[in-house]
């Protein structure tokens, strides 16, 4: 397929996606929906092909040939891994049969628990501890550099008050349900300001991302059309 053909297809699909500007209407919306269906279908198909070629096929080739074991675990271990994965896959296929749903759920439970454990360990080692360390770290040139001082104070106050905002424990009060001290309320409100500011910054970044993509597409349309 020539580049001109690829460009033409991209041009038409881009226009079809842009047709959503006119709204989700019966005739015009069909163009948008068609483009989306194509993208979703292609994505699913490509994911299937990549998963098969990159993951399943090497294992299938591997268990047929003891000479070309590509995992560090060796030929025998490859076979065990393959059949374990195959067993789990078969268990997932039993989901529609009510009598065997518990088997599917067991397989799901193992996968989810392992995933949660990995994510938890990673979150502790990769996020919580480094962020705590960064929060309590005081720069060497703190007193000399005023901007470093302001930066450190902002991070410290923002982190502390932000955490206070998510403090749900309060003294029970029969009339008002819960009662926070004035100091806690002040911390919570300050934390709310920091959180809202941070979310606003993230949202503004998202707008800039969208505009970058929009200008890229417009650039493409101009380059192809003129």
């Amino acid at each position: 397929m020539t580049e001109q053909t690829i460009g033409l297809i991209s041009f038409v699909l881009t226009l079809m996606v842009f047709s959503y500007v006119l709204g989700d209407l019966p005739l015009i919306g069909a163009l948008y929906r068609t483009a989306i269906y194509i993208f979703v279908g292609m994505t699913a198909a490509f994911t299937l092909v990549v998963s098969y070629e990159g993951l399943i096929l090497p294992y299938l080739q591997d268990i047929q040939n003891t000479e070309t074991s590509w995992t560090t675990l060796g030929y025998q271990a490859d076979i065990y891994i393959f059949f374990t994965a195959l067993l789990f896959g078969l268990l997932l296929l039993l989901k529609p049969i009510r009598a065997f749903t518990w088997l599917t759920n067991s397989a799901f439970a193992v996968v989810i628990v392992v995933g949660a454990a990995v994510a938890l360990a990673g979150a502790l080692a990769g996020t919580l501890f480094p962020l705590l360390r960064a929060t309590v770290t005081i720069p060497e040139n703190l007193t000399a550099d005023f901007s470093a001082l302001v930066d450190t104070l902002t991070v410290f106050i923002g982190t502390m008050t932000g955490l206070f905002y998510f403090q749900y424990q309060a003294r029970a009060n029969s009339e008002f349900g819960e009662e926070h001290s004035r100091l806690t309320r002040a911390f919570r409100h300050t934390g709310k300001v920091f959180i809202v500011t941070a979310l606003g910054a993230i949202y503004a970044s998202a707008i800039l991302t969208s505009l970058t993509i929009l200008s890229e597409r417009i650039s493409f349309l101009f380059q192809f059309g003129f």
Binding site: A134, I202, T209
Partner: peptide
């Protein structure tokens, strides 16, 4: 990273 991921990514880059 892109702009949308930058606020979080910058924190990681600064602290790790």
């Amino acid at each position: 990273s892109g702009y949308a991921a930058a606020p979080l990514a910058q924190v990681y880059a600064d602290s790790m």
